[in-house]
Design a protein around this nucleic acid. Structure first.
Lengths: 320, 320
DNA sequence: ATTTGTTGTGTAAACGCTTTCATAACAGGG
DNA sequence: CCCTGTTATGAAAGCGTTTACACAACAAAT
């Protein structure tokens, strides 16, 4: 494929000039610009991204935007999810020539940054578009309908789908889903994976909503287990699953013989409680988001996308 | 950030040796390997992808796998969608050092290829896993539940969602969805975007299924327009939309005054018929898929993902 | 007429890797 | 003891860009 040298030769200029034309930087006469673009078109030249990345010595200022809620979470273990994401970004920041700085959602000044990584599902559409005015934006573990903003999330649909599929294939039929508020994208996504998989297997989805931030789990759980037989309880996340696990044990249920409990995320507690769960690639998530932001910043195009990272099922002793 | 030089210095070897250790290639003594890995860990060294890509001179053989159906489509205009995707791959093949060759799904020998780009939604799970045995696989415009295979698709959910949202905000309420068979991922995805958006606006989703390959459109359309008032008809793709458009016109309906018709894909006919539609970034799709396959081939990890490219609404005169 | 600033262009040095080639040490076979 | 093959390592040449720096031409200001 044509390289910058070929273009330079054909246009009768130096590669430095070609580079300047392509990047619209520095002084170039109109006449030269035309010559270069002509050569580019003629050769069908496409700059090679890796070479660009390598050679570009720009330093970007990027803000790691977290909400107050997440900031608090980061101090205790529950926030470990985001801690890993942030660690990943820290790890690669210099490789992308990022100088990162933390920012608290909506209470800090976004001026002076080239880009923003919005971490977690607290930002509203308005807030996202606010940051967008100041620079490039990538949502991490968050998605908002119809905005067209790049984001990196876990593929809850696919994850839960395959868990259900697996249990059904092993003969289980009484599979129940206990989900968080469906206004959150993540919960909705997993919910869809569950219902879809059940329906495709000719089973009736049985779902219960539970707001893990404002409710006791006992009432919902009582209702679930009074209503009908439950062999498998798939929960929206590990927090909910662990609460359910403890409660069920206190009722005298044997886990997993009487009921299998499944979580989502794979936070550290999950391992300690021997909870089977869908592992979200948190580190990868941060890494990819950083990569994407870099692309946007160095930014020769690309269409925005939503990237869903597949999850891995981690079997521990809370499930058969 | 630490570079290969730093590692070499700390380990007391040359960068060539470090590279050999990292890539597990060529002769290196066990003792040296240990020293190098120790240095790598100590510095938290991560090889820089762009440098690797640039320096790696390997030539990959990749197969462009299409079904018989698509092969036929490519000859007439309907196949333009895939023609563009394939063009994109052709355009960048040498930039990724790919030597590509066409392959017909399930009727050609997959031996001797490093990777496979499976184009379009015809491949079954079994077929995908079959190719997977021979090399890396990326699905283009296709996704299969629970397989964990990388794929690049259009974000039908998001696209249809934002169209509905837009019409609702402008006061429309009688929005109907005419969709293709829901066993196809793409149709299902768009269907979900529609129902979700309707429900979130407190409206009742009204859907009709129509198999564009085996049915006449007249009966469904008659049913739709007999049942109730229709202001907006959102179709699963441009083919369906154009058929509907023609039929409605022949009935004497004024488009878009009486009813707005929306398609999906933005195939060439859409422009000629003045059909409003959601444009899929076909070129981008091919490009990203090629990029991804390259990553897998040069392959130092990464977790598999499903990438959904946002669509753009293209307003033409078939809609208000 | 000299200085200073603006505009346009080229040369060459990075960027951080991979890979080819050269070299050396050492084994075993004749 | 020489030859050959195997194992282990390093030096250095790229890969395709960007960019710092040098230089030249010319205009405007002194």
């Amino acid at each position: 494929m044509a390289s910058i040298d070929d273009v330079a030769r054909l246009a009768g200029v130096s590669i430095a000039t070609v580079s300047r034309v392509l990047n619209n930087r520095g002084y170039v006469s109109e006449k030269t610009k035309l010559k270069v673009w002509k050569a580019v078109r003629e050769l069908g030249y496409k700059p090679q991204k890796s070479a660009r990345t390598l050679a570009s010595r720009r330093l970007f200022k990027v803000a790691l935007v977290i909400s107050d809620r997440i900031k608090k979470l980061l101090k205790n273990e529950t926030g470990n999810f985001y801690a890993i994401v942030l660690q990943a970004i820290k790890d690669v920041e210099s490789s992308f020539r990022f100088s990162t700085a933390p920012l608290i959602l909506e209470s800090s000044d976004p001026k002076g940054f080239d880009g923003f990584l919005l971490i977690g599902s607290d930002a509203t559409a308005e807030q996202v578009m606010f940051y967008r005015k100041y620079g490039k934006v990538v949502l991490v573990d968050h998605y908002i309908d119809g905005l067209g903003i790049d984001c990196v999330v876990s593929d809850g649909y696919d994850g839960v789908y395959k868990v259900v599929q697996d249990f059904v294939q092993r003969g289980f039929e009484n599979i129940v889903h206990l989900h968080g508020p469906l206004r959150f994208y993540g919960f909705k996504d997993r919910y869809r994976g569950y219902t879809e998989a059940m329906q495709r297997n000719g089973l009736l989805p049985v779902c219960y909503e539970y707001d893990d931030l404002h409710e006791e789990i006992t009432p919902v759980l009582k209702k679930i287990f009074r209503d009908k037989k439950v062999q498998v309880l798939i929960c929206s996340n590990d927090i909910i699953a662990i609460r359910a696990l403890k409660e069920l044990k206190s009722w005298g249920y044997r886990i997993p013989e009487d009921v299998s409990v499944i979580g989502f995320d794979d936070i550290p507690q999950a391992e300690r409680e021997s909870l089977s769960t869908l592992r979200v690639q948190k580190y990868e998530m941060g890494l990819i988001a950083a990569e994407r932001l870099y692309e946007l910043l160095i930014g020769h195009g690309h269409h925005p996308y939503r990237m869903c990272l597949y999850t891995d099922f981690v079997k521990r002793s809370s499930s058969l």
